[in-house]
Amino acid sequence: MTEEKPLDFTREITSRLGGETITHCYQCGTCASTCPVARTTERYNPRQLIRLALLGQRDEVLKGDTIWLCASCYNCQERCPQKVEVADVIYALRNMAIREGNVPAIYMEFATGLMSEGRLAPISKFLEKKRTEYGLPPLKPANVEALKIILAATGFDKIMFKKEGASP
């Protein structure tokens, strides 16, 4: 268990882009009742996730898999009577989790695709051929060099590709 007080974790969340509104929550449960994922599985409940975060349960929130089960559909955010930006709060929590090494494999794939091709779905030789057959213009290459400069300036490359053995 961490020695941290609940409010320390809350302050950390509200100071991040996307996390600003978490303290408005009064636990009405509108988010959970409108959530397509919560209706499908007991593994996910946005109301509980917000409560755990506000109680300072840092490890449970950032090291578990709950935060990765949001489908980013924004139903919760749209309907929250307290204007908690629930989906954005979850992005903020994910951003924090990634920095602490909780990186699901699929997100590492996304980041690798972005860094190397400038796209999340690189084009195959088959599709290039198909495009020509259909009379579609060749796909213009992404400016990967400019993108790499931006990713270095925001620290994205370091967040995702820490050297083996380096401290977090």
Binding site: Y107, F110, A111, K140, A142, I150
Partner: peptide, 28 residues
């Protein structure tokens, strides 16, 4: 008109990694 050099828009998977980076990529 097809833009030269356009990249990924930085959708939810990238927003999940870092919101600030996503805004910068979209803005680019």
């Amino acid at each position: 008109v097809d833009l030269e050099g356009a990249t990924c828009c930085a959708p939810p998977p990238i927003q999940s990694i870092d919101l600030e980076t996503s805004l910068a990529i979209a803005a680019y």
